[in-house]
Design a binder for these strands. Sequence first.
RNA 1: GCUGCUGUAGCUCAGUGGUAGAGCGCGUCCUUGGUAAGGACGAGGUCAUGGGUUCAAAUCCCAUCAGCAGCUCCA
Length: 673
Amino acid sequence: MTTVKLPDGSLKEFDSTVSVKDVAKSIGSRLAKDALWGEIDLQPVELDYEIPEGAPVNLKIITKKDPNALATMRHSCAHVMARAVMRIKPGVQLAFGPTIDGGFYYDVECDEPLTEEDFPAIEKEMAKIIALDEPFERLDRPRAEAIQVCKDLSQDFKVEHIETGLADDESLSFYQQGEFLDLCRGPHIPSPRRIGAFKLLSIAGAYWKGDQSREQLQRLYATAFFTQAELDAHLELLEEAKKRDHRVLGKRLGLFHIDEMVGQGLVLWTPKGSFVRQKLQDFISEHLQRQGYDQVFTPHIGKLDLYKTSGHFPYYQDSQYTPLVDREYLSQLAEEGCTCGELSNLMNEGEIEGYLLKPMNCPHHIRLFASEQRSYRDLPIRLSEFGTVYRWEQSGEIGGLTRVRGFTQDDAHLFVTQEQLGQELIGCIELVKIIFGAMGMEDYTVRVGLRDPDSSKYVGDPGNWDLAEQACREAAQTLGKDFSEDPGEAAFYGPKIDFVVKDCIGRKWQLGTVQVDYNLPERFGLEYIGSDNKPHRPIMIHRAPFGSMERFIGVLIEHFAGSFPLWLAPEQGRILTVSDKSEEYGKRVESQMRNAGIRVKGDYRSEKLGAKIRDGQLEMIPYMMIVGPRDAENGTVSIRDRIDGDLGAIPVEKAIAKFQSEIADKTVRRKSS
RNA sequence: GCUGCUGUAGCUCAGUGGUAGAGCGCGUCCUUGGUAAGGACGAGGUCAUGGGUUCAAAUCCCAUCAGCAGCUCCA
């Protein structure tokens, strides 16, 4: 008699010996078909495993749907990959080899570095190992013995990891497959046969334990699926994602250019890209006006003293462009025989005079606030600016529009009383909501950064911090969306709310941010006169709902895959003539449309219509208006919609009305697929 | 900043130790057509930059710059 207990608690009894597969069959044919392997008392077993008779055993049948099934298989595949590398390359030191979204990696260190040319050999060896079909066997060893095992294997990273990262573990588990033995928490699939299809993807450097001061390892990225079809689909998805990369689309659609001669991370906006950017600025400006913001302009540089007061110089000097040293000060230094080395030292110590390219806008806005005496009756004061700032980002970090060295924040600084803080934060969140809503972007995450209760690095009164954190939480709640609360993620000067989205290849980027600041008002000694006729210190809110125009548009290009909604499209419509005979009518329609405020161009080349349509389609033109003799006769245009294709002939006035209403509504139309 | 890869025509890319190729785009001409590529001809490149090896370098080596992936960082 065999008895199994299923995860739902139900018991199943069998008269004779049964395998896992038999149990699955007894539950349902679908389950029997989908079953990958079983788990008895959390240990993976093959489907043909004969369940021992006697006392009831806990059995779980694992299918593809099991959230851990794929990860378990991939991790086993990582072991196979590491084993294959060890067979091919001498002196391989293993570090970590976890599963990640979309695959897995293994960090290794070899005597001679791996290159992508080694991939075919590694994959071949992996296939061999899988064909051997040796099981993954778990071995548990007490601490001291485990360390000795790793020492015997000359696996220094594993020894270190047991001694530091796993310092509290009394017993450690290993998994063995053939000659390959690795410290591993498990679990693993019962046999390598379950590895359906795998592929090595790329190789990159990674620091041991993520520490820049430690050894740099080679990280071998790979992926695996249960079937070849799934792997192929995944690879195709990666290819598709590359096509919507904003750097690719930006070039193809002529939206921006980054020029080697101008400098790394410095964006040149083409007329088309500038148009999109301007439209977005107009859009947000309109809402700022409604919310009672005042727009200001401030220069791109400021005296070093300004940033010494704010604390940004020299403390954050590494992430700023080198200061512009004051002319007279520089010649004075030269006369004194100052060497370059000495000048550099003076800079490091912050002991120089001159100007800084502004790395942020707040000090300028603060000085505007301080330029007049303020009463509590004036508050809140909301100063906004599309302010361009410059930061010396690490060269390896720069790329596309998402990480640049010069960028324009849709910045504003609100000077508020403690009582006003909550309401103003809600107003800031409202703006973010309006923007994401207008773009149809729902796939973003919200993080509320709170202070780390164990740290003393924070400035400001703890009681006020509690109030501000609570205000941030309440403001975040008004989004009607889940948000995470991250202790320790607050800036040292105040709590914050961040908005994060993913790009086409899954990288996360912070867009909007709302931050409370107790620090700068203090450093600049800001005051307003309260109703008690005494000076009080205002609280500052920094906020940028887009984050930066560059990053936001980068993400937006990928979000729309280059197909901007009509109101944002640089070229909203294009007149296509069927032949040269319709050019005159085409030009008449073109000017009629333009007079109605529609941004149109004409394609009067002597190409065939099919070619013109193809070009327009590839350029993501929202509406193509085909004009031929029939249209000229009837006063119509034959509309071809970017999404829905041929809409037939309609009178020009009706087409204009249709476009105008779509523009006014800021309609976001997506291909329904 | 670190590791690896890459840099050839406006774009996408092929190519080999012996004086440079394709497709697209561009120009001219032919074609006058109704919903995703009509045809012919032509122009266009110090093969990223600077060194080195060699009789000979775009090709091999080194450095620099830039791009890509990842790591680290991001007030």
